[in-house]
Amino acid sequence: MPFTKPVVVIDNGSYNIKAGFACDNHPVSIFRTAVGRPKFLKGTYGRTPYEVYVGEDAVARVDELDLNYPVVKGRITHWDDMERVWHHIYYRELKAAPEDRAVLLSCAPATTMKDKVKCCEVFYEALNAPALCVKPQSVLALFGSGFTTGISVGLGHDLTEINPVYAGGSISYANMLTNIAGNEITNFIKHSFRRRGIRLGKQLDDVLEDVKRNYVYVTENGAVKKQDYKKSFTLPDGKTIDVSDESLMAGEMYFQPELVLGKKLTSDVIPIQEAIVTSILKCDSELQPEMYDAIVTYGGMGTMPGLNKRLARELEAIINRPVNVIPTSEAYAVAWLGGAVFAGMAGAKRLWVTKKQFEDQGERIVKNRF
């Protein structure tokens, strides 16, 4: 099935969505996965005319809009809003007609077949796309790092998911969740500020996001030199606050949650290094050595300084052998890049489902291809 124009690659995320063309080496657009409607509607949608805002436009009007986030923990929970987001990508961000281009759509490793079929319905019936391929983000992250076998460690906004991949196929029965993600980091910093009496009002969300993205780091062994420990943050009003504890301890949540959470620690929270080892042990014994040779971290929290070195150190201490944690400067976009790589592979085009094939065979061909 020849594609006459570059494939559109869309990487769905709970916090941000990335979109662009397979011929590019970086997404054209990255924006918040959010949809906003006027608060005065109070749920009475459709009775009076109103404007719907998507992405950064919606977030900028948070005081006057009810915001909805259609992707929660990797799953699409509001299909009408997700359709609006995809529509926005084509007509506002990419300036491309959906009927002209095949689409590669990323999904969470645990996405159900029912949801994949629903994606086909939206793209074929509402957007009139000619062909669609749905691939797990974990597989694409490995592709984007130059591997087809290994462990994908997705550090997202509301989900940290470990997924083994062998020869380009997801081993879904070995998936693991740590139940510590970017959202828990944000809450930790927020509660720390509150405990210290720091009140920021409407600036709070922006400050929390800035501290999380630019100040949180991971030490190599859980310790830090005094001169490197001090971190100061300048608020929008010019006042300076100390964020040393928050910067250090937030990153430690992934590796030592019991140290940071204390009595708030629940039984379902697992240190990331233990979750990775458990996930690999669930795989067939002959595959396990290969998994340690390519460990790829991706997602927004995958950009934390020091993360990969610490992860390698912790894993080697458990299994007593070298591991290969793949460094990348663009962990937030590596799954999208893997999608662009996959879309350009000669043999990949047979994995797309065309609109006509879906109309003729329905759910059966989705199960076969995806």
Rank of each mutant, 00 (worst) to 15 (best):
P2D: 15
F3N: 11
V8G: 02
V9N: 08
D11M: 01
I17H: 08
G20E: 01
F21L: 12
C23P: 12
H26Y: 15
V28D: 03
A34P: 08
A34R: 03
A34E: 07
P38S: 03
K39L: 11
K39S: 10
R47V: 14
P49W: 11
V52H: 00
G55R: 04
D57R: 06
A58K: 00
V59A: 08
V62M: 14
D63A: 14
D63W: 12
D66Y: 12
P70K: 04
V72R: 12
K73Y: 09
R75P: 11
T77R: 14
W79S: 00
D80N: 13
W86E: 10
H88M: 10
Y90W: 11
Y91V: 13
E93W: 07
A96H: 09
P98D: 00
L104G: 07
L104A: 01
K114P: 02
K118F: 12
C120I: 14
V122G: 05
V122K: 03
A126N: 14
A126P: 02
A126K: 14
A126G: 00
A131D: 07
C133S: 07
P136C: 08
P136E: 11
V139M: 07
G144W: 00
S145T: 10
T149P: 00
S152Q: 03
V153S: 04
V153H: 07
G156K: 10
D158W: 01
T160L: 04
E161L: 15
S172E: 15
S172H: 14
Y173S: 15
A174L: 11
G182E: 08
I189D: 00
I189G: 02
F193W: 09
L200Y: 00
K202Q: 09
K202V: 10
L204E: 03
D205V: 08
D206L: 09
V207R: 06
V211R: 04
V211T: 04
V211A: 00
N214D: 12
G222C: 05
G222K: 07
V224H: 09
K226R: 15
Q227P: 02
K230D: 13
F233H: 10
P236V: 08
K239R: 15
S244E: 05
S247V: 07
L248S: 03
A250T: 11
E252C: 08
Y254N: 06
F255M: 00
K263W: 11
K263D: 13
K264D: 15
L265W: 02
L265R: 00
T266R: 14
D268F: 10
V269F: 07
C283F: 09
S285L: 13
L287F: 08
Q288E: 08
P289M: 09
P289H: 08
A294G: 05
I295M: 05
I295F: 05
V296A: 06
Y298L: 10
G299V: 03
G300V: 06
M301E: 09
G302D: 06
T303A: 13
T303F: 01
M304I: 11
R310M: 02
R310D: 06
R310G: 08
A312L: 02
E314D: 06
L315W: 04
A317T: 08
I319C: 04
P322E: 07
I326W: 01
P327Y: 11
A335I: 04
L337H: 12
G338I: 05
V341Q: 09
A346K: 13
G347L: 10
G347N: 12
K349W: 05
R350W: 09
K355E: 14
K356T: 11
D360C: 06
G362R: 09
K367E: 14
